[in-house]
Design a protein around this nucleic acid. Sequence first.
RNA 1: GCCCCGCUAGCUCAGUGGAUAGAGCAUCUGCCUUCUAAGCAGAGGGUCGGGGGUUCGAAUCCCUCGCGGGGCACCA
Length: 472
Amino acid sequence: MNFALTTEWLQRLVVEVASRGHGYGATDLGHREPVQVEFGSINPTGPMHIGHGRGVVLGDSISRVLEFTSHQVQREYYVNDQNTQARRFGASVWARMHGEEPPEGGYAGAYVTELAEMAKADLGDVDSLPRDEAEAKVREYAIAVMVYRIRASVARLNVRYDEWFPESRLWQDGLPQLAINRLRDAGFLKERDGALWFGPALEEEDGLGEQVRSEKDDRVVIRSNGEPTYFASDLGYLLSRFERRGFNRVIEVWAADHHGYVARLKSAAAALGINADQLVIIIHQMVNLKEGKMSKRAGRFVELDELVDKVGSDAVRYFYLLRSPDTTIEFDLELALTQSSENPVYYAQYAHARLSNVEATANERHPKLPEPANVSLLIHPWELDVARQLAYWPEVVEDATRLLEPHRIPYYVHDLATAVHRFYHAGNETGEHRVVVDDPELTRARLELCRAARHTLKTALDLIGVTAPDRM
RNA sequence: GCCCCGCUAGCUCAGUGGAUAGAGCAUCUGCCUUCUAAGCAGAGGGUCGGGGGUUCGAAUCCCUCGCGGGGCACCA
């Protein structure tokens, strides 16, 4: 695409964008494709920290972009409510309720003790039950509280979910069992050392299958003690989504520490008869603290809530989305706090607020303006530059959709805001270049440009979940 | 050992074959009696980690080496 954008073409674009409003840039790219975006699904055994925030913001923005381009999106959080970690968590709370130390590999944070106190108050007679049942009740209770808190944390970041899907529902519906039977019939499972293993299958086509395949690539589905692994649940989860719920595509957002599982899950999907290309796994790199690795056990992590408290949702979202998922973030909390007032998000929001203010001023000064706008009066370079930026927007949306890369949007927002600030500033230099002037026709033409730019700014900010204030 | 990500201005990062490689921050110089200065204009700052290759053309594609981060469980 390399064509000169003529003045006349740009002027017509301004009219079109101003009239389409917030729909400008939306396309039918998705053709109503049913897509699930699953993101942020951490074990509900502790609070979200700033690393989780990155995945949550990324998944939410991908969902927003897909919705904007006519995909039928369902946003899901997969709640691990009965895996090993959940059991350890429940056992830890149970231990604290009885004045004991958490078991080996358990959870030791202060919030565990707090949960134990809450459980004692809310589950009064739990100790009259047999130990197994009591612990299960405590686990259920503790998980429910953590999920509640996670919901609150992500809501503060302007993140929405449609479904909180519990792992236990898969087993109730018999899906992992169904998947295991299917894989067994197809010859993908084998028993060894008393456990049931899944062997790789994807390599068959490349002619290297026999060389690549080895026992160490196998993955346990059912442990030798008869307990299923998370992998067994994931097999059922694939059937749940691709077959029971009929999603054409499933997009998962994972942190880089899980990347090794990508090939395994894809080969499992293929073995189940699902087209592995329809399972899209987006890996984002880690968020590390400048002081060192985050670690729950060492008590060295920053809670997401704390960051949102101090910096605000808009700044947090913009900060995360300004980076490609492939970049590791070294997080400096102190710097984030001191620089919060000069966060680049305000540059964009300020442009929006200025436009809103100008439009309000125009309405006061000129209660009646001519219709329609005579956009041939938009001739200055700073005016046409705004229009030129507007012309780029649909392509940005398309790239962000096709590549599932929302980070392209804040960069566009910045460029559009720059054009807007220059346009506005021209009126500071010389009064006659203001939007609101004595001539109603000229005012009306420039107002048209303001509306087009403001709508597009608002649309773009919406897609990254950042608010567009009318006043700052 | 194997797998994934990164290496671009002093710092943090954009840029998936096409013009003289860009932005923010930092540094320096100007601009508020005005529709909002959380803004605008300008300056300095680059062997795009090294080396090969493909191409009319490479930060971008291929190979290789180096450095940094992450991962290779009957945890998830």
